[in-house]
Design a protein around this nucleic acid. Structure first.
Lengths: 173, 173
DNA sequence: GTCTATACCGAGATAGAC
DNA sequence: GTCTATCTCGGTATAGAC
């Protein structure tokens, strides 16, 4: 899914990867959409786990930023968004998940900004959530094309802000 | 391509849209990749035209921002990036185009920032180009999912910066 | 549960008549 | 140029044996 996009995820290939018969895929997941939904639900659970880790971290902004910077995770998310756009049956659930994650991150950033004394006037937590996700996703997309021009500078620019709030990154997550 | 993604663009469907025979598609574009490349080249030309308009504009930042905010354009660009990721044959050309556009925008922003007296230390033109594209693309992606939470605030946040530099938007492009 | 076999569809692509 | 006809492939999905 990550390497060749969701259209490459076919019952035949899934079976081949598992060393099993294609018919078995349809035994466990009647339609291919059911398979995608199952995968999506598993990812959503893992994502909630990660969110909890962010909140528990003593440098939550750094942790959140690193979480978003993960190119694999972003790549998969993009595939699911593409899937949502092209498959009516699963669109609603994917949209719901994306919205739930956004809402959680906004709540997280509200708490974090309050702790650091950032006034919502100078940077609303909602806007911060959008900017963080935007930049991280953009970088991830370009990396899949082996494009890296300006990435280091952009990362430095973002991390300057994070550093102002919670200092140098201490422990790798 | 925009509505259902590039995998939905098949020789049969292209022919049907044109009211012609599927074999004709292969007559004009031997492989489907040739068709995608032709489309991509036409878009690239139009993009260069738009870049020229940005430079000629008396409010270039506003014009550039509006250009990036176009959801259709962004949607198509995303499809071509997906295409580049999954089709070795056309990957190189698409990557080249994206890089060429980025380079042009950086050059543009250098000129614009110099005119407005923005020091590269506080905001490198390269970073500005990345941020502008990131946010605009992110908003466009979410709009395709009918998500709009936080969009207005984010747009306002970006436009506050633009307004600081070149004042209120005067003429619609 | 796991397999074989198969139906059915629609994709890309080409040959060859007109 | 445009068509008909056709090949081959690989996708989804199901029936039914084991």
């Amino acid at each position: 899914m990550l390497r060749e996009g969701y259209p490459a995820v076919t019952s035949r290939r899934v079976a081949a990867e598992a060393g099993l018969n294609p018919a078995l895929v349809h035994y466990y997941f009647r339609r291919m959409d059911d398979l995608f939904l199952a995968l999506h639900r598993r990812r959503a659970e893992q994502g909630l786990q990660l969110h909890a880790e962010v909140l528990a971290s003593d440098q939550p902004l750094w942790t959140l930023w690193e979480y978003h910077r993960d190119a694999q995770g972003t790549g998969l998310t993009m595939e699911f968004v593409a899937l949502a756009n092209h498959r009516k049956a699963i669109r609603a659930e994917i949209k719901d998940t994306v919205e739930r994650f956004r809402a959680e991150e906004i709540k997280m950033l509200k708490k974090i900004f309050k702790r650091y004394g950032v006034s919502p006037a100078e940077c609303p937590p909602m806007v911060a959530a959008m900017l963080l996700s935007s930049v991280a996703r953009f970088l991830a997309i370009e990396e899949t094309l082996d494009m890296f021009t300006g990435h280091a500078q952009t990362v430095a620019f973002v991390e300057r802000f994070i550093r102002q709030l919670e200092g140098e990154r201490r422990a790798a997550s």
